[in-house]
Design a protein around this nucleic acid. Structure first.
Length: 552
DNA sequence: AAGGGTTGCAACCGCACAGAA
DNA sequence: CTTCTGTGCGGTTGCAACCCT
């Protein structure tokens, strides 16, 4: 690393840089290559002397015209290097040191919205440079990859959801979700309408969301504005359980499902969560502040959790840059734990749709981070907790995620998962009967699940019997295979969820159409190889939300 | 203690864009 | 309109510090 030279290095001063110029290759780089025939420009770490020269120059001449620095100061640095040095290290008001939790949250959130637009992200983080943010993010990506955790905390996506709801104004069901972070940072929050969302199909690649949305559409599509964001609809599903006033009959249906699930043994919570029905259990939620991250980022898990036993391993390195908002999460509540001020009273944590009080915030998941910040450390902490095989307290119903807590679902090879598997083997028939109203709309019926989370797996188990386009449940559990029986590469991608593993593409499209407000048919089309494209977008060239014209 | 592997940051590289000539 | 120049941005690399065995 180019560690900042100690102050003793100041002694090297100018002479040092003069003595050790690195032959420049004309690397002023990019659009401003060094074209002169002067002395070779130095590369590598800046010395204090060079810094002093540059600072002095900027004080006198101001920023800009960086190529003139060399001419005016004798500094053997290209203008580009000077600009970079100034911008990243020398300019005033630069924050140094580690990112504070609030900054981390903001970075995560911004990245979810912008993708790798570091400069734009830096604009939201005064005193931070794009390079810093980029490095931080890359580090974070690596950590998440190692830990097998999702890049985006579920709450970040839910933040987008909540923000979207607030901003859209099209979906006014009385929620008044706090949004301190948003308001405090003047974030630019694109309105992810359902149409917009189409351009981000990865965001759909998470079974809990899908199930949530499917249920939402089943139960409450009528009251969902078409202009509501996709996540709005997800959120609606999350509130359905609590919103019996809206559709009491259907709410009863859900209650019935949950009741049947509750018949399961003490581990039923795990099963429900693994089945992705946790979002239906918000009324029992005590854990809006529990699990730092939801696990509904199933696709992300698939990406990063190479230990996912139920799926084919992901072969080879994956480019970790993910399109923005790829992982919108279905849990409408978990975001709260990020946005609520620390002083927020517990009562304020009550979901607007939640009729029953929330358990005391003191009920903490064992997975909760020591810092309770929901940030990178928490991810790591969760990973540790997962590795240690810790479980949540049985009495704690975690509904922070539509798919359960990370403790229970991120480590798919965990005993919990096996337990769920066993439960399924034992009870799936009766459960499926109970779940009949939902499964018909479950996207998992056409979803290859090899790259998905266990949540997706279990959801897939729900649907086959109900699905006209899916075979047996066992088939549903199998990743999509090509004719040779080998894992289809598409299965290794989150968007494999939409890879059209249905015998009837029109059915699939119709389902998506229902999901996304009936506009899918125009935008979504099957592609060769079983994938689905959304307009011109694909996984690899998916534009970030900010690149979508509406967001600019 | 030593050596190899990993981490994380600073800096570089190359492309793209805008404005001036 | 074309070319040149400056700047911005995102991806990548280099390497010292740190960690692990």
């Amino acid at each position: 690393m180019y560690r900042v030279k100690s102050e003793s290095d100041c002694e090297m001063m100018l002479q040092d840089q003069m003595d050790s110029p690195v032959a420049d290759d004309g690397s002023s780089g990019g659009g401003s290559p060094h074209r002169g025939s002067g002395p070779p420009l130095k590369k590598g770490p800046w010395t204090s002397a060079e810094d002093a020269i540059l600072v002095d120059y900027v004080k006198k001449h101001g920023e800009g015209n960086w190529n003139a620095v060399q001419k005016n100061t004798g500094l053997f640095r290209c203008g580009k290097s000077c600009r970079l040095r100034w911008a990243n290290h020398l300019r005033p008001n630069l924050k140094k040191g580690a990112f504070i939790p609030e900054e981390e949250r903001l970075i995560i959130q911004l990245h979810a919205k912008m993708g790798n637009k570091w400069a734009r992200m830096a604009a939201h983080l005064p005193g931070r440079t794009d390079n810093e943010i980029k490095n931080y993010w890359n580090t974070r990506i690596k950590r998440c990859q190692r830990a097998g955790l999702p890049i985006y905390p579920a709450s970040v996506c839910n933040q987008s959801s909540s923000e979207d709801q607030q901003l859209s104004g099209d979906f006014n069901c009385g929620e008044n979700i706090s949004n301190d972070l948003l308001s405090g940072n003047n974030l630019y929050l694109p309105d992810f309408t359902s149409d917009n969302f189409i351009a981000n199909p990865e965001a759909l690649s998470y079974a809990p969301q899908l199930s949530a949305v499917s249920i939402s559409n089943l139960l409450g599509q009528s009251f969902a504005s078409k202009n509501c964001s996709f996540m709005d609809q997800v959120d609606q599903s999350g509130i359905l359980k609590q919103s019996g006033c809206v559709l009491p009959a259907l709410s009863d249906t859900i209650d019935g499902v949950l009741s049947s699930v509750d018949q399961f043994s003490n581990d039923s919570e795990k099963l429900k969560q693994a089945l992705g029905f946790d979002y239906l259990n918000e009324a029992n939620a005590s854990s809006k502040t529990i699990a730092p991250f939801g696990v509904a980022l199933s696709g992300s898990h698939a990406f990063f959790n190479g230990n996912f036993s139920a799926s084919r391993p992901i072969n080879g390195p994956l480019k970790m840059e993910l399109p923005s908002l790829q992982d919108t999460e279905s849990d409408p509540n978990s975001w709260l734990k990020y946005t609520l001020a620390p002083a927020m009273q517990p009562t304020e944590l009550v979901d607007p749709y939640l009729h029953s009080p929330i358990a005391t915030p003191s009920v903490k998941s064992e997975c909760a981070s020591p810092r309770n910040s929901g940030l990178l450390e928490e991810l790591l902490h969760e990973a540790q907790a997962l590795g240690s095989g810790k479980n949540q307290q049985p009495s704690v119903r975690s509904s922070s995620s539509s798919a359960g807590t990370p403790c229970e679902t991120t480590t798919v090879a965990s005993p919990e998962f096996d337990l769920c598997q066993e439960y399924w083997d034992d009870h799936h028939s009766s459960f499926l009967n109970e779940c009949t109203p939902f499964s018909g709309y479950s996207f998992t019926e056409s979803t290859p699940v090899s790259a998905a989370s266990p949540d997706i797996f279990h959801l897939s188990k729900i649907s086959p019997q109900q699905s006209p386009s899916m075979g047996s449940g066992e088939q549903a559990l199998e990743p999509k295979h090509d004719t040779a029986g080998s894992p289809h590469p598409e299965n290794l991608r989150p968007d494999a969820l939409f890879s059209g593993n249905t015998a009837d593409p029109s059915t699939f499209n119709n389902a998506i159409s229902i999901l996304l407000g009936n506009d899918m048919n125009a935008e979504c089309k099957p592609v060769l190889g079983g994938g689905i494209t959304f307009g011109s977008s694909s996984w690899n060239n998916m534009p970030h939300a900010c690149e979508i014209p509406e967001f600019k």
